[in-house]
Design a protein around this nucleic acid. Structure first.
Length: 427
RNA sequence: GGAGAGGUGGCUGAGUGGUCGAUAGCGCCGCACUCGAAAUGCGGUAUACCUUUACGGGUAUCGGGGGUUCGAAUCCCUCCCUCUCCGCCA
């Protein structure tokens, strides 16, 4: 959530910033602001009434007989008035909650302004894209090697599911092991979080707004949700806590299965395992002092580039423009890996990684506080970034490491975790 | 899933309708004593929000929500969580 006090204090700044994400957001904020002011006035009235009531109430025990009756009468009238006012406030709050959740984070000043993905900026490209001749796509490779099976998955679970099998399954575990090894070295704490979380936390993380509710799987009977990323389960880990400066930055490497309904993507990437309802992912998550969040963000991006480079995958780095930012994000970089088998064998960059600075948008909703050395209190910043999204990384590996005979070499970095397999061949 | 017990400030733990935001102890901070420390004594020690230039003032919070009442930590309803026993289970 946004800083509502600040919003009331500097409305113009918020309008300008939100407008960069799209006109309708600033319009929403405008309406919301009116409600906020109304609420503020109402609350002040109520607090005054409550004060009067409390003062009167205090004397009651001391009074007797007629005097007492008179005062009680006064109190009754006051109480009735209060009840109506409080009812008004409650209605307003319910309305506000809906509104508030509709406002996304404000982009940081250095985020390029643009309407949608077309405004994203390519920052750099790395690696050799032309290493593979006549590339086959991963699904052809994976099925012939019998390490990916989406046909049977369709029978068992429906579309957008997949089985990883044999060396495919081992590759997933190798990727996880490798990521955990590197991240542990870099000071991240490995975490395996629950994948079912309570509704208020999903909301606090900003994933129930703007169609987000359609994207997550909900367990209606229990009012819970399946996470779409470990971020949603790790962020709330410290909810309600006051963190000391000495504890920060907190760096977590979360491994979890991720569930996505892919409701808005009918017809998109329907084949294979590029876009599925369930996949596993190692995710980096950082909590830090607001002054450090930009540095931490760059570190997360650097770690992502390192991991991709360690696998020897060609990639490019994109900075998302204002119109393409995720709801809770103030600034996002994506990494797209080169997948030579896509686009009819001509190759294509596809998103495999994403890192966002959500500033205090999530941490505020999670009611987190940072007590600095000087005892002042601020709201810490939170950031997230992909280490490996298994499915998509697997695709990039298969397509980039394929050999003319249809076998696939195992990247050097993963070989220590592959039980001696260096080349994946047809059985 | 069934039966029972419980959820109060950083911790332990009192408090069954009104000067209770809450006794007491521990812990923590400050001061005194001491060469220093321990022990001891004295004082202080919740959070959020609103308001005020400031001093200060106000409101809310005793697991969450709702209700009864002029007034709720205290009574009622409901949900959540923890513990014990039983059942089921990787």
């Amino acid at each position: 959530m946004l800083d509502l006090r600040d919003l009331r204090k500097n409305p113009e700044a918020y309008m300008q910033a939100l407008e960069k994400r799209g006109k309708h957001f600033s319009t929403l904020a405008q309406h919301f602001l009116v409600q906020l002011e109304k609420r503020h006035a109402l609350l002040q009235d109520i607090e005054k009434l409550r004060g009067e009531r409390n003062t009167l109430s205090k004397d009651i025990p001391k009074l007797e007989g007629g005097k007492r009756a008179v005062e009680l009468k006064k109190l009754t009238t006051l109480g009735k008035k209060l009840t109506t006012e409080e009812r008004k406030l409650k209605d307003l709050d319910a309305f506000e909650k809906d509104q508030e959740i509709v406002l996304p984070n404000v982009p940081l000043p250095d985020v390029p302004v643009g309407p949608d993905a077309s405004g994203n900026v390519v920052l750099r490209e790395r690696g050799n894209r032309n290493a593979v001749e006549q590339a086959k796509d991963y699904l052809t490779l994976g099925e012939s090697l019998d390490i990916i099976d989406v046909k049977r998955a369709a029978k068992v679970s429906g579309s957008r599911f997949g089985y990883l099998k044999g060396a495919g399954a081992l590759l997933e575990l190798a990727l996880v092991q490798f990521a955990m090894q590197e991240l542990t070295k870099a000071g991240f704490t490995p975490v395996i979080p629950p994948v079912i979380i309570n509704e208020p936390y999903m909301a606090a993380m900003g994933y129930l707004a703007q169609g987000g509710a359609d994207e997550v799987y909900s367990l209606d009977r229990d009012k819970q949700f399946l996470v779409g990323t470990a971020e949603q389960a790790i962020g709330p880990y410290h909810a309600g806590e006051t963190l000391s400066a000495a504890q920060l930055p907190l760096r977590y490497a979360g491994f979890s299965t991720c569930f996505r309904r892919e409701a808005g993507s009918y017809g998109k990437d329907t084949k294979g395992i590029l876009r599925v309802h369930q996949f596993d992912k190692v995710e980096m998550f950082v909590v830090c002092d607001p002054l450090q969040s930009e540095t931490e963000h760059q570190k997360l991006l650097a770690m992502e580039e390192k991991l991709v480079s360690d696998l020897g995958l060609p990639y490019r780095v994109l900075q998302l423009c204002t119109g393409d930012l995720g709801f809770p994000s103030a600034k996002t970089y994506d990494i797209e890996c080169w997948m030579p088998g896509q686009n009819e064998g001509r190759g294509e960059y596809r998103e495999t990684h994403s890192t966002s600075n959500t500033t205090d948008y999530q941490s505020r909703a999670l009611e987190m506080t940072l007590k600095r050395e000087d005892r002042t209190k601020v709201i810490p910043h939170m950031l997230n970034g992909t280490a490996f999204a298994i499915g998509r990384t697997l695709i990039a590996i298969l397509e980039n490491y394929q050999q003319p005979d249809g076998s696939v070499r195992v990247p050097d970095a993963l070989q220590p975790f592959m039980h001696g397999i260096t080349i994946i061949r047809k059985a």
